[in-house]
Design a protein around this nucleic acid. Structure first.
Lengths: 236, 236
DNA sequence: TCAAAAGTGTTCCTGTTACACCCATGT
DNA sequence: ACATGGGTGTAACAGGAACACTTTTGA
């Protein structure tokens, strides 16, 4: 694809100067993790642009789907990042060079962008990230072990982490982070990973069940020692 | 000003397809009110655009200042309104006609816009709205007595109302809505107007004073019957 | 001048809910 | 050893009720 075509394509199909960035959050090994894409020697949040004929919400859902294959996910608005110096010059030069293409000042992506950021809670097992021609790899990173990232994407990730913690303290925020069927100890561990502190086990179970959000299923049959826990499912 | 100049000016100076809309909230007669501008036979939220050389936050503050003359105000992000059919065709045609100018499809404002909305709490007495060449009047409206408004601006206003009520239930949200010096009954009435329900007087006073946010001043000298109330001021 | 009414600040009380922690019981 | 879930004492909170005080108003 020639640069001029890309430029023209960008301007014709997308709202200029506006980008969507997603903090895609998964859960594994008792820790929250975040999906990042590698461009050059640094990492980037998955994201995209708003097509002229779609709403911002549709764009967000579409980006998430094309990036991860996920349909029915939990998406929540995070913040506007609108600093006057938010532009992709470095990133764009980096991967243009990698592709052997000539970097040009007026490449449409090499502009100032206002970024609308969202966070999404996903089931890692069901997530199948797709590499575009821009990025060379993807990986899940623990929130407290993030790599070097382009621009202010590290700030965005950390903002999402804080927001999720706050959200989890006043509402149920574990959507998609566990398999469809889970036990109360599972949920308890996840919740502790989200809020980042110990939570009383007995009270947690009480308050969770009191919400009425959960449907109790038969006990799991374990071989490990100890009483067999009930399984639960989110009521729809 | 010729249309072509306006078009050129818009494209040169502003980020296209991105607008800022402000829900400016004041307080009077025990009710919350909202500042609107009249264009043609309907009303509109005050707003503006983001200059290429300023951040979104700076733009928001600047818009508020040029529209109301207010400096130091309380501004809070509300939501993104990003529907695919959000365009100003009607409004723009309306006031172009009024100005005796020819309406044209490619007038830069006659585009789809993604709107970043904020709400601001202001002191009505200190607010001096400025009419631009676009709008012909301004007025304060009670939230439950809104006029017909352009586009989805009514939704925006109602969203702001809900958000403010929620905010007031967990944090102090009366910034600027009262004069610098006020009494506890004043604050109590305001708080009830915000949350939209009766609040126990004695407990309210207790919790407000317990926050330590307030500085007690000498009693006011009244002419109305009853004990003279203390005055308070927000500690800085 | 005096009593009534009305607005304000503060304390006390009571029932309820929330919270933190322990431990009995079942597998 | 692990999971469930009951119990218990404490703290926080909501909502009144009561009361003290101050000032206007009207008889």
């Amino acid at each position: 694809m020639q640069i001029k075509e890309v430029v023209a394509f960008g301007h014709r199909h997308f709202l200029p100067n506006l980008s969507i960035d997603l903090v895609i959050i998964g859960y594994g090994d008792d820790a929250l993790q975040c999906l990042l894409l590698k461009v050059g020697d640094k990492w980037l949040l998955p994201g995209g642009y708003v097509k002229r004929e779609e709403s911002v919400e549709e764009a967000t859902v579409n980006i998430l789907r094309t990036r991860t294959g996920l349909e029915d996910t939990y998406l929540k608005f995070l913040a506007v990042f609108g600093g006057k110096d938010r532009q992709f010059s470095e990133v764009s030069r980096e991967f243009m060079q990698k592709l052997g293409m000539e970097w040009s000042e007026d490449y449409w992506m090499n502009n100032r962008f206002v970024s609308l950021t969202y966070y999404s809670l996903v089931n890692k097992e069901k997530t199948h990230p797709k590499i575009s021609f821009v990025d060379e790899a993807f990986a899940w990173f623990d929130f407290d072990d993030l790599p070097e990232m382009w621009m202010d994407h590290r700030d965005i990730v950390l903002t999402a982490r804080e927001q999720l913690t706050r959200d989890a303290q006043r509402e149920y925020s574990a959507h998609n982070l566990l398999p469809e069927v889970f036990t109360m100890p599972d949920l308890h561990r996840l919740h502790q990973a989200i809020v980042g502190s110990k939570v009383d086990r007995s009270r947690f179970q009480k308050t969770m069940l009191a919400t009425g959000l959960f449907e109790r299923l038969p006990r799991v049959q374990k071989t490990t020692p100890g009483r067999n826990p009930y399984q639960y499912r989110l009521k729809k």
